[in-house]
Design a binder for these strands. Structure first.
Length: 598
RNA sequence: GGCCCCGUAGCUCAGGGGAUAGAGCGACCGCCUCCUAAGCGGUAGGUCAUAGGUUCGAAUCCUAUCGGGGCCGCCA
C-alpha cells in the first residue's frame, strides 16, 4: 500500500471546479448506482437526498454520508445492511483511507493525506478562482438594492442594504450567475416635488434672500450647493416666477444633483451599480399603462371596493371604488389598488411597470433588497412578478432589518434636529469601508444589527474584521520572512512543492476547512445569504490562529523550518492556501485583505 | 383583527431534518529565550419560548399558544 505517500489529483482539468465534497458525493452516488446494477439495491432510487457533509465532530472523520439512512425506507432494507455494503465499495477507492458505519447509520469517511495535499496544490493553482461554482449556470439575476429616495445623502440606514446587496451580487457572480446590480430611483413621487421646493429656497438664499425652510421641506445643508449651482445656471431669473414655472425644471436639476451625491456615497462604500432605473421614466411613456393592460388581459385588473381593514378601522375610512389588481390570485391576502380615486396611479403602479420591465429584460431571477418596513409589500410584488412572468421568474425579497447605532455601548437615535443624524459618509470616514462592510454582514439580514463605533474601530480579536484580516496578514508575514531567508515561495513554486511533507493531523485539519469553501459558497449563494461567507472566514481565521499557536509548543508545525527549504515550502503552501481563500472570501464581501497590520 | 420576522449559554449571535447543540463577549485558570501574544488553550454556563403533531430521527418541518418587533387606508 503506497497510497498514503502519493499526492492524489495534483491537477484537474481547467474547466472542472475543485470541490472535494461534490467529488466524494459523486463517488457515493456511483457506488450506489453500482449496487443497484448488481441487484443489491432497487433500481431507480431517488438519490437527491444523499448528502456528503463535514461531520459536526471532527473525531468522526473527514466527511460523512447519510446515504444508508435516507435509502433504507425506499429500498426496503435496514440502514445497517446498506451501509455495510456501501462501505465496502467506498473503501476500494484510492481516495478513501477509512470508511465505517457509525451512529444510527452514518458512514464516516477518512480521506488519504494525498487528497488533502492535492487540494492545497489545486487551491494555489486556482488562486482567486478557487471556490467558484458553476451552480448558477450563467442564469441572469437582477439584484435591486439601495433604491434610496433621491432627496438627500445616504444615511446609516441605507448602508446595510447597500452592503448586503453588493455582497449578494458578488456571491451570486462567484457561484456562476450573470448578475446585474440595479438601483431604482424613486423620482416619480411627491417627495421630489418637496426636494425641488427645498432647492428653490436654497436658490433664493444663494441670491441673497432669506430662505423659507417651511415645515415639511428638507432642511439639510447639502442643498446649499444645489442652490448655488442653480444661481450659476439661472441667475436671478426664477426669483419672481410662480412655482408652476420652475417646479419641473428644478425637480430634474435637484434630483440629478442628489443622484450624483448618492453615486459618490456608494462609491465611497465600494458599491458600483450596473443600471440605474428611473421611476419617473415610467410615467407618460405608456409603460405603466402597458403593464396594467398586460395584467388586464389576464383578467387581473378590475374596478371594485375593498373591505375596510380589520381591527382598528381608520376614522376616515370610506368604501370607494378603485382600480384593483387581483393579487389574491397569486398568493396575496387582499387585492391592491393601482389607481387612486382621483384617477392618479398609486405608488404600486410604477412598481408593477418596473418589475414588468425587469421580467421583459430577460432575467431568470429577480431579487429585491428592501428595508424590513416594506414587509407588507412582499406578497403583492411576488404576485406581480408571478403574473407578469407566467410564474417563470422567481422573485426573492430580502428584507433588511435595522441597524442600531451605539457609541461606547450607549445607544443613540438619529435625529436631524439634535445633530445626531449619521450619514453614510460619516460612517465610512470614521470606520472605513472595509470595517463597515464586514460588520454589516456579521448578522443575518433579517436580524437587527448593533453597530458600535467604538467596537468597530477596535484592533483586537473582538473585532471580527480585524481578526480575519490579521490571519491573512500573518500568512503574508510568513511569506515575507521566508523570502528574506532565501526560500522561494511564489505561487508557481508552492504549487509544485513536495506536499507529501504535509501529513500532520493539525495540518490536515486546516486543509479540511479549506475544502469546505466551495461547498459554503454554494450553500450561501443558494440561500442568498452572504453573511455565511463572513462567518466561514471567521472560522477559517480561527483555525489559522490555532494552528499558528501550535507552533509555539511543537516547533515542527511552524510554517518556516530553519534550514529545510522543501519542508518550509510545503508548509507555506498550506498557509498560502488559507490566505487565498480568505482573500477570495473577503473579495466577495468587498473587503480588502490586509497584507500587514499596523 | 390580519400578514411577515424573531424567541438557542448571564450578554450578542451562528446553526434551519441527523450522531454528545456551537462561537464571541463577560467570569475563572493557564501559554511569549519561538514565523506579529493585535494571538492561543482550558474551566464554568443551555427544559434550543411553551404544548401538541409529522419522522427511524426535530433547535430545525407543521399546528396552536405566549412573548418581542415590523407592516396593514387612494404615503412614497
Amino acid at each position: 500500500m503506497t497510497r498514503a505517500g502519493a499526492v492524489i489529483n495534483p491537477g484537474q482539468p481547467r474547466d472542472q471546479r475543485m470541490n472535494l465534497f461534490s467529488d466524494i458525493r459523486g463517488l457515493v452516488i456511483a457506488s450506489l448506482e453500482a449496487m443497484a446494477a448488481d441487484g443489491l439495491l432497487p433500481a431507480g432510487l431517488d438519490l437527491a437526498n444523499v448528502a456528503v457533509e463535514p461531520p459536526r465532530d471532527a473525531g468522526h472523520g473527514d466527511m460523512a454520508t447519510n446515504a444508508a439512512m435516507v435509502l433504507a425506507k425506499p429500498a426496503g432494507a435496514k440502514p445497517r445492511d446498506i451501509a455495510e455494503a456501501l462501505v465496502g465499495r467506498l473503501a476500494a477507492d484510492p481516495r478513501i483511507a477509512e470508511a465505517e458505519v457509525a451512529g444510527p447509520g452514518f458512514i464516516n469517511l477518512r480521506l488519504v493525506p494525498g487528497v488533502w495535499q492535492g487540494l492545497i496544490a489545486q487551491v494555489i493553482r486556482d488562486g482567486a478562482g478557487y471556490g467558484r461554482s458553476d451552480m448558477g449556470q450563467g442564469a441572469k439575476v437582477n439584484v435591486e438594492f439601495v433604491s434610496a429616495n433621491p432627496t438627500g445623502p445616504m444615511h446609516v440606514g441605507h448602508v446595510r442594504g447597500a452592503v448586503f446587496g453588493d455582497a449578494l451580487a458578488a456571491l451570486l457572480d462567484f457561484a456562476g450567475h450573470a448578475v446585474t446590480r440595479e438601483y431604482y430611483i424613486n423620482d416619480g413621487g411627491a417627495q421630489v416635488d418637496v426636494l425641488a421646493r427645498s432647492a428653490y429656497e436654497r436658490y433664493r438664499e444663494a441670491n441673497g434672500l432669506d430662505p423659507e425652510i417651511r415645515e415639511g421641506l428638507y432642511p439639510g445643508d447639502y442643498l446649499i450647493p444645489v442652490g448655488e449651482a442653480l444661481k450659476q445656471k439661472y441667475g436671478a431669473s426664477l426669483l419672481d416666477k410662480p412655482e408652476a414655472e420652475w417646479l419641473a425644471e428644478l425637480r430634474e436639476f435637484a434630483t440629478e444633483a442628489m443622484m450624483e451625491m448618492i453615486r459618490g456615497d456608494l462609491a465611497a462604500l465600494g458599491v458600483h451599480m450596473d443600471v440605474y432605473s428611473s421611476e419617473k421614466s415610467l410615467y407618460g411613456t405608456g409603460k405603466i399603462e402597458a403593464a396594467i393592460e398586460q395584467l388586464r388581459g389576464m383578467g387581473l385588473i378590475y374596478e371594485g371596493v375593498l373591505e375596510p381593514p380589520k381591527g382598528k378601522v381608520p376614522d376616515d375610512w370610506e368604501p370607494r371604488e378603485q382600480t384593483l389588481f387581483r393579487s389574491t390570485s397569486h398568493g396575496d391576502d387582499v387585492d391592491r389598488p393601482v389607481k387612486k380615486s382621483d384617477g392618479a396611479w398609486t405608488y404600486f403602479a410604477p412598481d408593477i411597470a418596473y418589475h414588468y420591465d425587469k421580467v421583459s429584460r430577460g432575467f431568470d431571477q429577480l431579487i429585491d433588497v428592501l428595508g424590513a418596513d416594506h414587509g407588507g409589500y412582499v406578497k403583492r410584488l411576488k404576485a406581480v412578478v408571478a403574473a407578469l412572468s407566467d410564474n417563470r421568474v422567481p422573485l426573492d425579497v430580502k428584507l433588511i432589518q435595522l441597524v442600531k447605532l451605539f457609541k461606547n455601548g450607549e445607544p443613540f437615535k438619529m435625529s436631524k434636529r439634535a445633530g445626531t443624524f449619521v450619514t453614510l459618509r460619516d460612517v465610512v470616514e470614521q470606520a472605513g469601508a472595509d470595517v463597515t462592510r464586514f460588520m454589516m454582514l456579521t448578522r443575518k439580514n433579517d436580524a437587527a444589527l448593533d453597530f458600535d463605533f467604538a467596537k468597530v474601530l477596535e484592533q483586537s480579536k473582538d473585532n471580527p474584521v480585524f481578526y480575519v484580516q490579521y490571519a491573512h496578514a500573518r500568512v503574508c508575514s510568513v511569506i515575507r520572512k521566508a523570502a528574506e531567508a532565501g526560500i522561494h515561495c511564489d505561487d508557481a513554486t508552492l504549487a509544485v512543492a513536495d506536499l507529501s511533507r504535509l501529513d500532520h493531523p493539525a495540518e490536515m485539519e486546516l486543509a479540511r476547512r479549506i475544502a469546505e469553501w466551495p461547498r459554503l459558497v454554494e450553500i450561501a449563494a443558494r440561500g442568498h445569504e452572504p453573511h455565511r461567507v463572513a462567518f466561514y472566514l471567521y472560522d477559517l481565521a480561527s483555525d489559522l490562529h490555532t494552528h499558528w499557536n501550535r507552533g509555539n509548543e511543537d516547533t515542527s508545525l511552524r510554517f518556516v523550518q530553519e534550514g529545510e527549504v522543501e519542508t518550509s515550502q510545503a508548509k507555506i503552501a498550506l498557509a498560502r492556501a488559507v490566505a487565498v481563500v480568505i482573500s477570495a472570501g473577503l473579495g466577495i464581501l468587498g473587503v480588502t485583505p490586509a497584507e500587514e497590520m499596523r
